[in-house]
Write a protein that binds this DNA or RNA. Structure first.
Lengths: 221, 221
DNA sequence: GCGTAAGGCTACCCGCCAGTAGGTAGGCGG
DNA sequence: CCGCCTACCTACTGGCGGGTAGCCTTACGC
């Protein structure tokens, strides 16, 4: 019935190495983001890339190497996006605001990059987890610097500096979590998302600085 | 030199099924929390459990079944811990406070449970991810209810209800992230952790309710 | 036009691990 | 003390998927 020729595995057009590498990385990010490191198969990546498996190995090395290349490329992208969004001579709150907006813009535009970085990178034991944790730590420290700077500027001392680490960890977590939430609500703009966080955190922090402190109303251990 | 008898695989003592199942689940949670679902091997789990592999299969079924059993047991534990911590007739902020404390107490005491639930459960495609997402969603909605209740009580209308979903997602994320941070800082008590979050979020939210709003100082698109 | 290197492929290997077949042992009812 | 059910085991298989050996084939330089 079908005159379907078995299509003898049409050969891919010759392309310069750099271009193929980009294509492979794109495919890898896409597949890794869907299935995670372990469940993703090199065969599927090669299929999505429109290229045969040995190409991947000659160009990008082992599966782990490939994943590492993905992580590093996407991390760099994210970092650059945020860095480009920040205007360094503004006051701390405005810096935070611009950073957040850039972050949410990035997540919306490159959701697969975000997924790989945030969700999948932890699942590979050892080196990559460490790398990601490092990046995250730097982000937290950056935020902490802003927060502490605002705190000391307002006259609060070491107390802010101490709890600043925890607070920043919480803030970064909130930002990430809100990013995940935003993936399911694409109609909410990056400005609105950033505003929510600013209103939550910054106002709360300001109050703290002003000496207004929430505490449990009953005596409790 | 060594008089080491090859130790012909000392048979495990006969124990009632319920006990063995508990032991196996304990071992599984421990191993899954260390290596993640895919990298964990049934052989290692059986070894840690002090029992041979077929036992696991006869008692708990396939690897996926086993993981599901772990997830469900630990999720139930967590839920109960939090539920027990909450005093339902207190005002919203006190409820949140008690819930948070119970949560951090749980994480500190059962860190492996927390790791499995938070980090590893997402890495198994499909059903479990959905289950966890569901649980998380319920947590978010619970928090949202508290937040909105406090908001409307103070006279704020639909605006709170709308942004409440996003804010709650952010808050839950902040709580989780702070939990991870707390794992590396065991000296910080659950009360302090909960206070940090309350100060951040609740004060910020109160300001919002009072009409005090942070907004970017320059005109910006 | 023709050599040659870089781009690309098919077809295979092999280790690891989820899952099983089939057998041993120990306690409890009779 | 005898059978028998349930707890428990050793020892295997089957296939999935990472990784590779070895071979075409197209474009570009000369």
């Amino acid at each position: 019935m079908s005159e379907e020729v078995p299509r003898p595995a049409e050969r891919a057009k010759r392309l310069p190495r750099a271009v193929r590498e980009r294509q492979i990385l794109d495919a890898a990010v896409s597949v890794f983001s869907r299935y995670g490191y372990h469940s993703a198969s090199m065969d599927e990546i090669s299929e999505v890339a429109g290229v045969s498996k040995p190409m991947i190995y000659t160009y990008l090395g082992s599966k782990e190497d490939l994943f590492g290349a993905c992580i590093r490329r996407e991390a760099t992208r994210l970092l650059e996006a945020v860095q480009d969004g920040i205007k360094p001579d503004l006051p701390p709150d405005m810096q935070l605001w611009h950073g957040l907006r850039a972050f949410y813009r990035f997540v919306a535009e490159y959701r697969e990059s975000w997924t790989v970085l945030h969700r999948q990178a932890m699942t590979v034991g050892g080196a990559f987890a460490a790398e990601i944790t490092d990046m995250r730590t730097r982000a937290i420290e950056l935020v902490a610097a802003l927060v502490v700077s605002a705190g000391t500027r307002k006259g609060l001392g070491e107390q802010a500096e101490f709890s600043g680490a925890g607070l920043s960890a919480a803030l970064v977590g909130a930002a990430e979590s809100l990013a995940d939430w935003a993936l399911d609500h694409p109609d909410v703009s990056d400005g609105v998302l950033a505003s929510w966080l600013m209103n939550l955190v910054w106002l709360g922090f300001n109050d703290l600085v002003e000496g207004e402190i929430w505490k449990p109303s009953e005596s409790d251990d």
